[in-house]
């Protein structure tokens, strides 16, 4: 009952913050609209490059264009979902640097709850979301998927899991901020390069990269395995079947581990600005 109440409170708090954040976004309509279009164009160009290159071939390793784009849509939609809830984690170094984190610490609400609520990057949410949605609508009906209730449930749960995997990666990097180490560039390099790899079926890559994408930065669970659940390409025999269902488990397990590390790092937080003295 208490847990239920807490969850309810969190949702209401999130709604409050979302309303205020939205109000700010609307204050700067033109600026935010342009940012949205910039993100939309940047991501669309990435897709178009793949599109035009792949058009030269009928298929690669048995993957057709629509199937590739369906796989790609997971990346966009899960990133969009990730940004909707974890912008504060993505921008954690600025949350600390601006002193906002000190403020969160003196409020009688859980830290993670506040970080999730506090910031929201509407432009990235809509930009990635729009590209993802277009790809999804274009491909989901043409790759032969039966949208049964089970499949729809799988899709939603997996998408949430995929967003949590990405949140965990960002949160891992944010832990270092507690020791006053800036890892933003290293993180971006690792994150966005892994993500670029994950835009294609991992069977395209040598074993080393495959293993990296499964065990180290588990982007294979963000795009490849979820897509394979629906597409069932014969190459699936290369991997363990169970991987198809692992996305939410990997997400939750990773997040739990990283959250423990994060909680521990909190003890080393040294505040910002004039905090040294």
């Amino acid at each position: 009952m208490k847990l239920l109440n807490n969850t309810f409170d969190t949702i209401r708090l999130f709604a409050r913050f979302t309303k205020l954040n939205l109000k700010i976004t609307l204050e700067y309509k033109l600026d935010r609209t342009l940012t949205f279009f910039a993100i939309f164009c940047r991501e669309s160009v990435n897709v178009l490059v793949i599109y035009f290159i792949l058009k030269k071939f009928i298929s690669i390793k048995g993957w057709e264009m629509n199937e590739m784009l369906f796989l790609y849509s997971f990346l966009f939609l899960s990133y969009s979902l990730f940004v909707a809830f974890f912008t504060g984690i993505r921008e954690f170094d600025s949350v600390i640097y601006s002193g906002e984190f000190d403020r969160l610490l003196i409020r009688p609400v859980g830290l993670l709850t506040q970080i999730i609520c506090a910031r929201m990057d509407h432009c990235a949410f809509l930009g990635h979301g729009a590209v993802g949605l277009i790809l999804f609508i274009k491909t989901s009906t043409s790759v032969g998927i039966q949208w049964t209730p089970t499949n729809i449930l799988y899709y939603i749960v997996t998408l949430v899991g995929a967003a949590i995997i990405q949140a965990s990666l960002f949160m891992l990097s944010s832990c270092f901020n507690f020791w006053a180490i800036r890892t933003t560039n290293l993180r971006n390099m690792i994150f966005f390069n892994s993500r670029r790899f994950a835009g294609y079926p991992i069977s395209f890559y040598p074993a080393l990269i495959q293993n990296l994408l499964i065990y180290v930065t588990p982007f294979a669970f963000v795009s490849y395995f979820p897509a394979q659940y629906f597409l069932r390409k014969p190459e699936l025999s290369l991997f363990w079947d169970g991987f198809l269902y692992m996305t939410p488990i990997v997400g939750v397990a990773m997040f739990a581990l990283v959250y423990m590390l994060w909680k521990n790092g909190l003890k080393h937080y040294s505040s910002s600005g004039t905090s040294m003295y």
Binding site: D102, H268, M276
Partner: peptide, 11 residues
């Protein structure tokens, strides 16, 4: 620093 410890910001 003292105030930050009193308010729970620093351990």
């Amino acid at each position: 620093t003292t105030v930050k410890m009193l308010t729970g910001i620093l351990v």
